[in-house]
């Protein structure tokens, strides 16, 4: 009996003459993690801000657990929490003070707020840093406090906007563990990310978003099979060899071979991994020397290329001017 956590219909948000969200239809089932995958400026944050009642849509409708985000904003607020892309705790206060403040405004008595806050600090490994100002925290600690602040009252739906961007691998893993613990306890998580592997690791379903539209939606395996099972990256010693390398790899894998942003890089989409060793042998036989190579999951860039025909960076450039400055409409 899974309900629906989020439903949007033809959602639109306009900044000036730029449509940051351009007709998004979304159905997110209750429970588990739903991944929102896309480059900077694709409209992920704007969509989350509408769903979290921070922003009004210019068109379409959105509801959270059946409550309209505009007309029933207060009901929505009592069920959701938002951990934004930027630190959403007060940096001048200590970790404990931040959590206590939230405990108080969310209705805990003074004593209960203190208990709750101590429990949270302990669970998130922040007890020792409790009395330090947040501005002295490391990136990983800050992120954990941010998430702790979102579950002072455990929400039914948690928005995590790029929770691991800029974190070291260990802190990233910790955030993943927290997300898994949350969903195990029944919280639905809507997670935005620029990393395909993160969405793949955590999310049951993934929506790929580009220039304000959802361009693909489905389970992560379905999505990946639409892109190919993997990609081979080669890094050449001599960038002058690149045309030849592209030529050889195209013959080995088919059309989906393209130059990387580094002049010595080539990437090929691989549907059948058994062809990889032979392709590498052919490069060696033709005297194309490699400084390195890797075979792995397709990156967001490749997903994008496969789905849209352009890379994520191009989207970034096109959308950047308005997307990164959502206040642009204000004088």
């Amino acid at each position: 009996m899974t309900g629906i956590a989020i439903e949007t219909h033809e959602l639109v948000k306009q900044f000036g003459d730029k449509r940051a969200v351009d007709g998004i239809d979304l159905v997110v089932p209750e429970g588990g993690v739903y991944g929102f995958l896309g480059p900077n400026g694709a409209g992920k944050t704007t969509t989350i801000q509408i769903l979290a009642t921070l922003m009004r849509p210019d068109g379409g409708t959105a509801s959270v657990f059946g409550h309209d985000v505009v007309r029933e904003a207060d009901e929505v607020r009592s069920m959701v929490s938002l951990t934004g892309q930027y630190s959403s705790v007060d940096e001048d206060l200590t970790g404990r003070e931040n959590l206590q403040l939230l405990g108080r405004v969310l209705g805990y008595s003074r004593a209960d707020a203190r208990t709750r806050c101590d429990d949270l600090l302990e669970a998130f490994g922040l007890t020792d840093a409790a009395t330090k100002q947040v501005k002295r925290y490391s990136g990983g600690m800050r992120r954990r406090l941010d998430i702790a602040a979102s579950i002072v009252v455990t929400p039914r739906l948690l928005f995590l906007d790029e929770p691991t961007t800029g974190l070291d691998p260990r802190s990233r893993k910790q955030v993943w563990d927290i997300v898994r613990a949350l969903t195990a306890r029944g919280t639905t998580v809507l997670l935005t990310t620029q990393y395909l592997d993160e969405a793949d690791q955590l999310a049951e379903r993934i929506a790929v978003i580009d220039t304000g539209r959802i361009i693909a939606e489905g389970t992560s395996s379905a999505l990946k099979s639409s892109v190919g099972s993997g990609a081979l990256h080669v890094h050449l010693i001599d960038p002058g060899d690149r045309p030849r390398a592209i030529d050889i790899l195209t013959r080995a894998f088919g059309d989906e071979v393209f130059p990387g942003s580094d002049p010595a890089d080539v990437t090929g989409r691989v549907d059948d991994r058994s062809k990889v060793p032979a392709a590498l042998a052919t490069l060696a036989a033709d005297g194309v020397e490699l400084a390195g190579f890797s075979y792995g999951q397709p990156t967001l860039d490749e997903v994008f290329l496969a789905l849209t025909g352009h890379t994520a960076e191009e989207t970034l450039e096109a959308g950047d001017s308005t997307q990164n400055d959502p206040e642009g409409a204000v004088a």
Binding site: V105, G107, F124, S138, I151, T154, S171, D177, R185
Partner: peptide
Amino acid sequence: TTTEAPVAAEKLDAVLATGPRPPRASAVTT
């Protein structure tokens, strides 16, 4: 000593499992 303590799994599960949400705070309290 105060840098990177690990996330405590059981503790985390316990804080997530806490009972009903507290009653809404009054305007004066907030």
